[in-house]
Structures are given as structure tokens and as C-alpha cells.
């Protein structure tokens, strides 16, 4: 009897799920940061000078996406 897990390379499925799932959160997070930054600039154009601070938070959020990306090198069958 051939097990399904033997026939399919589960590591590839795992990597795909990891990338897909791991990128959702940071994607939403960076979208929120960018959207709120633009909203702030729209309300008050003086707020445009806070782009540097917005980018700092983008980098903080981005770390979790990169951790998901790095994890695909650890997963093997």
C-alpha cells in the first residue's frame, strides 16, 4: 500500500502554505501602515515628514514575512 504522504512531496505543500500564510499578516500590516500614512498626509500635508517613522514600522512588520521566507529552507521531507 502506498501512503499518500509518500507519493506526494509534502515538503513542497508545507513550504507553499508557509509562504502563503506567513505573508498574509505582514501584507495586511504594511497595507495598514501605508494606508494610514497616506490618510494622515491627506488630512494634514505637514505629516508627510513622518515617512521615515512609517518606514521603521514597515521594517518591524516585514521581519515576520522574512521569517516565514527563511523557514522554507528549514523544511525538508
Amino acid at each position: 500500500m502506498i501512503l499518500l504522504a509518500d507519493a506526494i512531496d509534502t515538503a513542497i505543500i508545507g513550504k507553499g502554505l508557509m509562504i502563503g500564510g506567513g505573508f498574509i499578516g505582514p501584507g495586511i500590516g504594511i497595507g495598514l501602515i501605508g494606508g494610514n500614512y497616506l490618510q494622515a498626509v491627506g488630512r494634514n500635508p505637514e505629516a508627510a515628514k513622518f515617512l521615515g517613522q512609517a518606514l521603521v514600522f514597515v521594517a518591524i512588520v516585514e521581519l515576520f514575512a522574512l521569517l516565514a521566507f527563511a523557514s522554507i529552507f528549514i523544511v525538508t521531507k
Binding site: A59, I60, E62, L63, L66, L67, F69, A70
Partner: peptide, 13 residues
């Protein structure tokens, strides 16, 4: 950990 991982992962990836 977060400082070192952020820098390393950004450049390596």
C-alpha cells in the same frame, strides 16, 4: 534577536 534577524534576512533574502 530581532535586530540581527531583520538585517540578516533582508540582505540574504
Amino acid at each position: 534577536i530581532s535586530l540581527s534577524l531583520r538585517l540578516f534576512l533582508n540582505i540574504a533574502i
